[in-house]
Design a protein around this nucleic acid. Sequence first.
DNA 1: ATGTTATCAGAACATATGTTCACTGTCAAG
DNA 2: CTTGACAGTGAACATATGTTCTGATAACAT
Lengths: 234, 234
Amino acid sequence: MARKAKGLGPRHHKILKFLETTLQEQGLPPTIREIGDNTQISSTSVVNYYLEQLEAEGYIERRSGVSRGIILLKNAAGKLIEDFGRAVDNAVQTVLIPLLGNIVAGEPMPVPASDFSYYDPESGIDIARSLLPAHEAEDQLYALRVHGDSMIDAMINDGDIVVMKKTNQAKNGEMVAIWLNDRDETTLKYFYRENGHVRLQPANPTMDAIIIEDPRIVEVQGKVVLVIRQLSEN
Amino acid sequence: MARKAKGLGPRHHKILKFLETTLQEQGLPPTIREIGDNTQISSTSVVNYYLEQLEAEGYIERRSGVSRGIILLKNAAGKLIEDFGRAVDNAVQTVLIPLLGNIVAGEPMPVPASDFSYYDPESGIDIARSLLPAHEAEDQLYALRVHGDSMIDAMINDGDIVVMKKTNQAKNGEMVAIWLNDRDETTLKYFYRENGHVRLQPANPTMDAIIIEDPRIVEVQGKVVLVIRQLSEN
DNA sequence: ATGTTATCAGAACATATGTTCACTGTCAAG
DNA sequence: CTTGACAGTGAACATATGTTCTGATAACAT
């Protein structure tokens, strides 16, 4: 029953196939004995024997001493498999940002606790990481939905989603969310500190800036990172 | 150090996070001891204790007696995890949408050829699939960057990115890109066809609609699906 | 104070699983 | 025929890993 080992034999293929389906159906790689059972190989050593060959041929990668430590690199057709890591890496080119609540002009907007790494699991939005500023600390980001037309002068509509970064100080030129103590109002404006006073500039170029003489009545809640408007399909 | 078990504590989250990253980076679930090492839990029994709770809460599934038999069902944010097979299949939860050019008011906006499945790969933006309408045909989507202030009445700013779907007919209530033949102008408006004429309604509720008596001078270029505004970090 | 519950440590234990070895059979080349 | 490479068996072994048990500790309710 001997045979010159040229390329892959039926058993190699059977094993690769089984590796693939097991990964898909079970979510984790099989053990040597599981492979044996499902490929009519009665001995663990023979399975091991084939696995060594498959590794030498570059089809799999093995972690010695690690249970189920088999990583599929190429499938039976020789096609490159994205291993789970890379597959999910791709999936994780997207960041889940917690949607903490609504912005309503007349009431303070929700601000997360200082450590909100565990947030309400029921709502969040996916954002491709490439849309975010490069070195933004992901865990300082949160999102709010705008209710009402109060942010029109910030060019933000009813229903828009605003992604914010938690901070309580603004640099000049940044768009920030501000709570105005004196008039109980939340607003989104470009922030400028100029010789003693604060200038809040609306995003809409047709509108005029607000000058606040007393900086103490502006409370910076966060910095706007991204605005998203989804047009519902009708 | 006792604490009433309400929802998930920091350790639950730490474990879920670790499960997620391990799956991503290693391609297979961790052992109980690995979890312990990476979450500052010194006892396997304690890890087991938390895993039981996570299973009860529906975050994971465990295979008793199976090494590394932990299947992640929901991540720390409570989001459902696609099982391995699906994860490999749609490795991309993110869609790369070609950025075809700019919208400038005074010139016709770029419209893709009917088959633009092969586009310039160097310019494109990633959009999480979940941000797009559910059954949108991905290959009919393209993006444009808005130049200038001409879209202010559509609540769209200089620099904003507009994701569009190629179409040349609009349904009532959709926001569409329109080329107005008579005045050589591109505009984004809500579209309504009403007894003989076309009403183009600006998104900005403070502005008035345009009534076009002759429907032939409106050319629908595409339907707006998403608007994105990135605030550059200074 | 007392008992209860949630949380944790440490160890012992059982078993799941990778590794290795001695041995057998087949076939082709020398 | 003999030899060696290839294929395979079965078992023993080592260890990686899940499971369980005994106690401790702290917060909380009674």
